[in-house]
Amino acid sequence: MPSLLVSVVVPCYNQSKYLRETVENALKSTYRPIELLIINDGSKDDSLGIARKLAEEFPEVRVLDQPNGGVSVARNNGISNAKGEIILPLDGDDLIAPVYMEEAVKVLTTRQEVKVVYCQAVKFNEEGQKKWHLKPFSRHQLAKDNMIFSAAFIWKKDAEAVGGFSEDMKMGREDWEFWIKMLKNGGEVVQLPFVGFYYRLTTTSKRKRTGTIQKKRDRIDYLNKKHADFFERELNGPLRIQRTWSRPYNKLMKLLRLL
């Protein structure tokens, strides 16, 4: 039986400094066949030129160019144009271990109940690296916080079934909302027992730009509006600003209303 094609979807916005390293690193994967789609999201630097040169050098690489629309629009563009049945979203400055793809595909293709496969991870920059301590997956925990980074393996059909990444979510953590709608009604999640993902920390990292209190409030309001049923089931009510206290607070508020 031939191996399934994996499509690595690489959204890129002004990441010319790291794009070649990310692409060449992904192409060192022990798994084949693969294709790698670079989606240039209206970059103002030389990202598009570097992407096109990479496509000339490596037959597995394709380039899509779009006006700046944000990372969700870029990922969805890549997913819709992907030829593979399995998708790996990978940002244009991050890295993966050579065996990550091979081991993830083994799980997806042998366990039909599994929707998402990810791994252990580290955060790194020029000064060094540190372990990224991710909470164990559960739907209850997913209601309070995200523990799956975007560079996880999924089936293309599952991504399309939930409408891809929400393009109107502009306040960050769009991968969290994606996992909620992907997993809230079922599906197993597997974390591989090794470090396979390397998240690059930069001064312009989106996580820093979207970490303000106002962005957090906007994000929680958005999630509550879109997934009220999920939070009611897992937290006995809406997600709160103090997320870890959401369930006991909701329970208390319901008790008080009965008095």
Rank of each mutant, 00 (worst) to 15 (best):
M1Y: 13
L4E: 11
V6R: 00
V6T: 03
S7P: 01
S7H: 04
R20F: 03
E24R: 08
K28M: 11
S29N: 08
T30R: 09
T30E: 12
N40Y: 03
N40W: 02
N40D: 15
D41M: 06
A51H: 06
E57L: 15
E57Q: 14
V63R: 01
V63N: 03
D65K: 02
P67V: 12
N68V: 07
N76F: 02
G78D: 05
S80E: 14
K83A: 13
E85S: 15
I86G: 00
G92V: 08
G92A: 13
I96D: 00
P98I: 07
M101Y: 06
E102H: 06
A104D: 00
V105K: 01
K106G: 05
L108P: 01
Q112T: 12
V122R: 11
K123E: 12
E127N: 15
L134W: 01
P136A: 12
Q141A: 13
A143D: 03
N146M: 09
N146L: 04
I154E: 01
K156Q: 13
A161W: 04
V162F: 07
G163K: 10
G164C: 09
G164H: 05
E167V: 15
E167T: 14
M169L: 15
M169N: 05
M171Y: 14
R173H: 12
E174V: 07
W176R: 06
K184Q: 15
N185R: 11
G186P: 04
G187Y: 03
V190D: 00
L192N: 00
F197L: 10
R200N: 09
R200S: 06
L201E: 15
L201R: 13
S205F: 05
R219H: 13
I220K: 05
Y222L: 12
L223V: 14
L223Y: 06
N224W: 09
D229P: 01
E232R: 11
E234N: 12
I241V: 14
R243N: 07
T244N: 05
L252K: 05
R257V: 09
